[in-house]
């Protein structure tokens, strides 16, 4: 079913597609993170804003990716096969997911901790950076993991309109009736997604040592 010798002959192409796949899926994660932290902070500070932002995020999330991939060129004036369409669409999804995560995570920071920090003389900005944000990290990482894995898988849909990194292997494989391409494509996408997931998990553990310490103490009690 798989023509193994096809792989070494096409390593260069596969490498390029892999690289494009990473660019298409990960740049949106970074951009979305930068956008959603302040948005989530605003949503947590103002109930009125939250009442707008959270449902709006939910609404955006109900729109299928193929829809955004197709509509964005009409809205932005980009070419239909421009990578920007994919990146902007995935950024929108990631923001939609993370805003909610950040707002919930900030809301879950114990009010006593915030009050204690205020009482010790933290100003709001400093308090956010050094107290609230770190405590929100575990939820943020969970959101990032979901978004990253989803993005890596979703990029392949972009192949349907001409930009999809490894997704091109899927569509070409179908058109050429060549299962090797499809299987290689699927496997690489899954491996990439799981790898990214594992890296984020490790990153989260590394930057929040207190979470596991606490869990250990609890399970002993």
């Amino acid at each position: 079913m798989i023509l193994w010798d096809w792989i070494p002959r096409n390593l260069g192409t596969i490498g390029q597609q892999l690289l494009q796949h990473l660019q298409l899926s990960l740049i949106p994660v970074v951009v979305a993170l930068v956008v959603s932290v302040p948005l989530g902070w605003l949503a947590n500070r103002s109930p009125a804003l939250r009442a707008v932002l959270v449902p709006a995020a939910g609404l955006l999330y109900t729109i299928p990716s193929i829809v955004l991939f197709v509509m964005l060129p009409g809205v932005l004036g980009t070419r239909i096969d421009s990578p920007l369409n994919i990146q902007i669409a995935l950024t929108v999804y990631t923001v939609a997911l993370l805003v909610r995560s950040v707002a919930d995570a900030l809301a879950a920071v114990p009010s006593m901790v915030v009050a204690a920090a205020t009482a010790m003389g933290f100003r709001p900005g400093r308090r956010f950076v050094s107290v609230e944000l770190p405590l929100a990290v575990p939820v943020l990482i969970a959101g990032l993991r979901v978004a990253t894995v989803s993005n890596i898988s979703l990029v392949s849909v972009g192949a349907l309109i001409g930009v999809g990194g490894l997704g091109a292997l899927l569509t070409q494989g179908f058109q050429e009736f060549f299962p090797t391409k499809i299987i290689i494509g699927v496997v690489l996408i899954v491996v990439l997604a799981l790898l990214a997931d594992a890296l984020l998990l490790l990153l989260g553990r590394y930057i929040t040592p207190w979470v596991r310490a606490g869990a250990g103490a609890r399970s002993k009690a």
């Binding site: 979901v146 392949s156 997704g167 899927l170 299962p179 299987i183 699927v186 996408i189 899954v190 997931d197």
Partner: peptide, 13 residues
């Protein structure tokens, strides 16, 4: 695991 699986790949296969 299934979240990582590209839906297009499943379909095409």
């Amino acid at each position: 695991g299934l979240r990582a699986l590209p839906e297009l790949g499943v379909l095409i296969l």
